[in-house]
Structure formats: structure tokens, C-alpha cells
């Protein structure tokens, strides 16, 4: 709302001397009177009617949109409530016991296999392997190694074409 003449004088008086302020108020009043005496053309009534129709259709759109937004709002609230209930409910709370049981299962499972027969066989097997090894290498323990070497050389001589390809 525009200032009344007294308020205008007071306002302009804070920038100008009283005489200049009074003149400035008159200048402005007469300038605005010019605008008043030369009114702008009125808007086209058909365009105004079109604007009103447009407004009505937009209000309709806003009303249609509103229930959807309300529904979305309620859905969000319901989801939040469900999450809170789920968080505090014992039905949905994850138990700590399975972790402990899991550890026990992991520890116990390998030892439930009966390994006794397998383990008992290991010494006898290793003994056999040891004996075989001794038997195979018995030549190296020959009482006359030179004789053994000669025999080997003879063998090589009889088959002297092995290197010819």
C-alpha cells in the first residue's frame, strides 16, 4: 500500500531538505496522475475468459493430484511404522545363537569321522615302503661294489649302440 502524503514528506525529508521534499512529492503525484489520466487498454474479455477456463482446469488437475500425494504420504508413514515395529519386534530380531552353533558345528564336524582304522594302517604302510626301499637299494650295499661295476660295464659294452640313436 502506497504511503499517504504526510508519510511521503517524512520519507523524502530524510533524504532532502523540507522544501525539496515537498516539491518531490508534488512531482511524483503529478507524474502518477499522468499515468492515471492515460489508462492502459483493458485486457481482451475473451482472453480473460480463456484464463478463467485454464485456471479451472488447473484447479481440477491439482485436486486430482492431491489424493495421490496424500496416498503417497500415508504409504510412507505406514512403511516407517512397519520398519520401527520390525526393528523392535522379537519375531524379526536376528538371533545370536546361530553364530555360536555355527562355530561348534565347524569345530566338531571333522572329528566325528572315525579315523582310527585309517591311522592304524599308516605305520604298517610306511614300514612296507621302507622295506621296499631297502630292497631296491640293496645293490648299493653289495659286499663287492667293484664286481657290480664291472657287470654294469659289461652290460653297457654288449649294448654299445644305445648312443647311436
Amino acid at each position: 500500500m502506497t504511503e499517504n502524503p504526510e508519510k511521503m514528506k517524512e520519507l523524502l525529508g530524510s533524504f532532502l531538505d523540507p522544501e525539496s521534499a515537498l516539491k518531490a512529492v508534488e512531482d511524483m503525484d503529478r507524474g502518477l496522475d499522468l499515468l492515471q489520466s492515460h489508462p492502459a487498454p483493458a485486457p481482451d474479455p475473451e482472453r480473460i475468459a480463456a484464463i478463467k477456463r485454464d485456471i479451472q482446469s488447473r484447479i481440477g488437475c491439482i485436486r486430482r493430484r492431491q489424493p495421490i500425494s496424500v496416498w503417497i504420504g500415508w504409504s510412507a508413514c505406514a512403511a516407517a511404522v512397519l520398519l520401527v515395529v520390525a526393528h523392535y519386534s522379537p519375531f524379526f530380531r536376528p538371533s545370536r545363537i546361530p553364530l555360536k552353533q555355527g562355530v561348534e558345528i565347524v569345530n566338531l564336524t571333522p572329528w566325528t569321522i572315525d579315523t582310527e582304522p585309517l591311522l592304524s594302517g599308516i605305520p604298517s604302510n610306511s614300514e612296507d615302503i621302507h622295506n621296499d626301499s631297502l630292497k631296491t637299494n640293496s645293490d648299493f650295499d653289495s659286499p663287492n661294489p667293484i664286481e657290480t661295476l664291472e657287470q654294469e660295464l659289461k652290460m653297457l659294452a654288449s649294448t654299445d649302440d644305445f648312443w647311436k640313436g
Binding site: F15, D27, L34
Partner: peptide, 20 residues
């Protein structure tokens, strides 16, 4: 703002042949 309105309206009056 005051200065702009004052100068503008004064100029408008001068342009329209009103000295005041």
C-alpha cells in the same frame, strides 16, 4: 528507489510538456 521514481516521473512530465 525513491530517486528512480522521482527522476522517472519528472522526466515523463517534461516529455509530455508539463513543466510543473
Amino acid at each position: 528507489t525513491l530517486s528512480k521514481v522521482h527522476r522517472g516521473l519528472k522526466k515523463l512530465r517534461e516529455l509530455m510538456g508539463e513543466s510543473g
